[in-house]
Design a protein around this nucleic acid. Sequence first.
RNA 1: GCGCCCGUAGCUCAGCUGGAUAGAGCGUCUGGCUACGAACCAGAAGGUCGGGUGUUCGAACCACUCCGGGCGCACCA
Length: 636
Amino acid sequence: MFHVFEKHVQRAFASFVHSQLDPEAPVLAEQPKDPSFGEIALPVAFQLARKLKRNPREIAAGIVSGAGAVEGMRSAEVIGNGYINIRFDRGAYGRAALEAFSQPPAPRAGKIIVEHTNINPNKAAHIGHLRNAVLGDSFIRILRASGNTVEVQNYIDNTGVQVADVVVAFHFLEKKTAREVEVLTRTTRFDYLCWDLYARMSSYYKEQPESTAWRAETLHSIEAGHGELSEMGHIVADAIVECHLATMRRLGITYDVLPRESEILHLQFWATAFEQLKERKAIYLETEGKNKGCWVMPGSAFSQKEDDEDSKVIVRSNGTVTYVGKDIAYQLWKFGLLGKDFHYREWKRYDDGHRIFISTTTPGTDATSFGKGTQVFNVIDSRQSYLQDVVVAGLRQLGYTDEAEKSVHFSYEMVALSHRTCAEMGIELSEEDKKKPYAEVSGRKGLGVKADDLIDKLIETAQREVDSRHAEAPAEERRKVAEAIATGALRYFLLKFSRNTVIAFDLQEALSFEGDTGPYVQYAAVRARNILRKLEERGGEMPDFASVYVQGSGPSASQSYNLSGNSLTGAPGNITVTGSTNYEVSTAFNNFYHAYPVLTEEDAEKRALLLWMTQYFHKQLQDTLRVLGISVPPYM
RNA sequence: GCGCCCGUAGCUCAGCUGGAUAGAGCGUCUGGCUACGAACCAGAAGGUCGGGUGUUCGAACCACUCCGGGCGCACCA
C-alpha cells in the first residue's frame, strides 16, 4: 500500500544520492510542514551534511541539479537551509494514486502468531481487557493488510488461582453443586455474577485468612483434573470464555484458536519442557535459602544484575509449576519447538462462518493445525514485562536464540479510572487512592468498568443521536447504525493513546462523538460516500480522471496529497499513527467538503478533479478504517 | 534500593529513526446551516516542551544529572 508515486520520485533521488554521494544515506520522504511547500520533502541533505562536512544547502542544490528531470515531477527546489521540496504533476499523480489501490500487498513468507485478550476466565471483561483486545486485533489487521499470514491465539488460564477462587466461593460459601452452577450459567448474567462473587471471595480471604486452605484444595483438584471442584472449574471457565468471546465479538474481534492451560498440563507440555530445561541446565534445584526445594531460573539469565538474589521460581517446593513455567512450554509450542501438539475441537462458528478451535486432550476429527509460527507477538500489559523476560530467557537458555529474538512482548500501559468517573460510578476511594492521579482497576476489589456496560452505554448515547437525526428510518436499521458508531468510538478511543501512555479512563471523554473521535472519521467517510451516491442518483458518472487533462484552479495537488496521506507506511506496531492519520485525513476532507461543492461545480475539468479527490479519499479512509476495525455506517 | 514507563496549552493527549514558525481535541470566546445533512467548518485567546548541563550547523526528541509521578521486582498471574 505504500504510495507508489511517492516511492517512484523518492527512488529517483535515492539512486542519484547512492551512486554519487553516499551509498549508505537514507533517502526519506516526508510531508512538508506547509502544503504550499509542495507534495513531498526530502531532508536527505541534512543527513549528508554531517558526513560530508559540507553545507546542507549546497548539497541539496547539487542533488537537485544532479537528479535532473523525473517523470511525473513538476519541480524540485531547495528551500530554507537544505530541504528539497518537490511538486508533482497533477495528472500523473492522480493516475498513479488510483492504480495503487488495485494492487494487493505481496504475500509474505512465514506465519506470525499474535496472542491477545488472555483474560482470566473467572469474571466479566473490563475496560483494561478491551484495550488489550482492541490493540491486538488492530495490530493483526495491520499485519494482514501488509500481506502477512497471522494466527490469533487467546490463551485460557483455566487452571489458575483466579478460577479456583470463584469455584471456592460457589462451593464453600454458596454451597452449590457443579450441576447447580451449570444451571446458573444458563439462567443468569453469569460473568456479572462471578464478578461480584470473586470480589466477595477476595475480601473473605482477607477477613478469614485460614480459608485459603480451600483455595489449595480446589487448586489441587483442578490441576489433577478430577472431582467435583475440577468439574465446577471447567463449567465456570468455559461459560466465562463464552461471555468474553461474545463481548469481543461486539467489537468485531475474533480468534482462531483457544489454547487452554489444562491441556498444557494434561498433555504433558510442561513435563516435556521441564525435562529440556533441566537437561540444558537452564534451571536448577535450589538447596538453600528462601527458595530451598524449588526449581529456579537464576536472575542472571533474564536481568542485567549479577546477583542471584532475584532467581525466579519455576517449580514450587510442593512440586507444582508456576504460570511462567507453563508459559515457557506454551511459547516453545508456538514455535513448534516442543515436539508435541494439542488436539482440537471446534468451539464455535462465528456468524460470518469463521471457525474457532479450542485445545482438548482427546484426538478429534477436525484436521486442523496451529502453532509453528515464525514470529510471535504477545500482547500483554507492561506490568508483566518481568515475566515475559523470564519466558524469553527460557528459550535462550535452551539454545533457541533465534526464536528468543522473534518473541516480542507487545506491551502497553494499563487502563485506570479518572477521579471524575469513579465519582460518577459511586466508587468510594480511600484517602490514599485519592492522592493518586487515577484509580487502578482491580478485579479483586470489583473496581472497574465492565466492558459490556460501557458498550451498552455507548450504543444508548449513539442511539439518541441517530434517532434525533433519522427518525424516519426503520428502528432496526437505526440500531445497527448506533452500534457501528458506538464500537467505532470505543475502538478509536482505545487506540488514540500511544501504547506506553496510561489511560485514565474517563467516561465523558469516551462518550464524546465530536473532535478527535471515531465518529468524526466515520462521518467524513459517510459524507464522501453521500456525494458519490448522490452523483449516481442524479444520473451522473464518474469521469475517467486519467483521460481528463486537469490544469484548472481549485484544490491543489498537495491538497489531494493530504487526502491520500498513507497511514500504513509507519511501523506496524505504531497503531496510534494510523489512528491520527485517519483523523488528519478526515480533517483535510472536511475542509475540502466545506470549501468545494463538488456536485454543483460547473467547470468540467475542475469537477473531475473534485470527484476524483472524493473517490480517492473515500477509498483511502475505508481501507485505513478497516485496519482499525471500524466500520462505516450507511448514514449518520 | 534496582528495573521499566511518564512529565509538552486550563484539561486529555499527538509529535514517526534530531530538521523548516511546537500540533490536535476538549473547555472558553466570536462567527457560519440553501440538503454534497452542522456528529461539520472558520477565527481568537492559551506553551521558558519539569529544571540544569552537554553533544550538534540544528534538540520536545540523543547523553548525563536533578526534581516530580506511575508500574514492576512472590513458591499470584
